[in-house]
Design a protein around this nucleic acid. Structure first.
Lengths: 198, 198
DNA sequence: GGTGCCATGTAACGCGTTACATGATTAT
DNA sequence: ATAATCATGTAACGCGTTACATGGCACC
């Protein structure tokens, strides 16, 4: 939950209201192209944080303007923020969509796994070039945020490409030695390569 | 939305009911340790798919048992599935939590960026060794699913480690040539640009 | 008079989670 | 008897999204 903590972090600098928080967040991540946080998310997040006692709100009426709701970090909120900084971030679960697609293809025969790999690889190469181009055009003295994100994008696309190569190699290996087939289960069923129940 | 499509893929093999779909999905991804899909998600997903006309349901009463609700793929559903196979998968957005943490630290001074990098790197190395060990212990003839996921985990952790190195280098570079400081726009209100305020 | 920025929200939905709840069959 | 497995769900919440809605102010 990056937004939640980002809000806490921005309130640690000074009290702010919703609109300001949104603008600050957008600036932080280098613009709306990278991460467009919707107003609805900011306001609902603030409501939840207030509910949990991590922030406190007090309204300020302005001369001839809409009233602002200023949010302040509470001690509990500050503690939560410090804990966030203190511990590392667990990488996202393995919930990989391409992996699911590949396994479904292997199990059901609805699509050719090598074709899936081919399609995915083409797309990744295209992205890779786009990212590298963008990074080349960026100004290091001004757009640190963007450049760091592009660095990450490049590292990840390269990782994906390596992974696709490994998948292909593993599939080839299985195809070369058709079935190890341990002796158990003399069932008359036609066998699928994969582990799905028939 | 991997689960949604996985359900369609499993129904492409043959009609199934909720419980069976869940079991098949778990088998597909190599066990609950990798991806524990909760029953609630399966049933709500099926309801949404039926709502959208991608699957059709017909109940089957059993002798002395609870009735089963068998779901079948509709032509619309099959078409959706084929489209999913036909196009590549867009990589997840750049919503990176470590990046947000780093930027908040740089902007607010609440935490030391180099320390954040250090913490994160330690954690990544630990994960890397765990993944490699696990992969070494796995049986390639039986646990293809697990091995592919571990391959991915390794590639991604290595990518993260490379990225951390790049971040450190970029920060060093900035620190060496302190603040180019372009002239700011005196646009009425005292505007904060991004980067490092007090 | 319009466009755009400032500033605030609500409603409803998708995906995912935890927790709760029911009831039958099968194995120990 | 009791525990596991089969089989079905509902309720409520967190995070994120789109769409809708309201108003004041400033600039051209």
């Amino acid at each position: 939950m990056p937004v939640r903590h980002a809000v806490l972090g921005l309130l640690a600098q000074r009290p702010r209201h919703g609109y300001e928080l949104r603008a600050a967040f957008q600036a932080l991540v280098g613009g709306a192209e990278n991460w467009d946080v919707k107003p609805a998310q900011i306001y609902t997040t603030l409501a939840r944080l207030e509910q949990g006692g991590l922030v406190a709100e007090h309204s300020v009426e302005q001369d001839g303007g809409p009233e602002k709701r200023i949010y302040t970090l509470t001690p509990t909120g500050r503690k939560t923020l410090q804990e966030w900084f203190a511990c590392g971030i667990e990488s996202e679960h393995q919930r990989d969509e391409f992996y699911v697609k590949l396994m479904i293809a292997l199990a059901s025969g609805v699509a050719d796994p090598y074709e899936l790999i081919h399609t995915q690889r083409n797309q990744l190469y295209q992205h890779l070039h786009e990212f590298i181009d963008q990074r080349g055009r960026a100004d290091p003295s001004k757009e640190l945020a963007n450049i760091l994100l592009l660095d990450k994008a490049v590292m990840y696309v390269e990782a994906d490409l390596r992974w696709l190569d490994m998948i292909e190699a593993r599939l080839d290996e299985i195809r070369r030695q058709p079935l190890p087939e341990p002796e158990s289960k003399p069932r008359g069923r036609p066998r699928k390569i994969q582990a799905l129940p028939g």
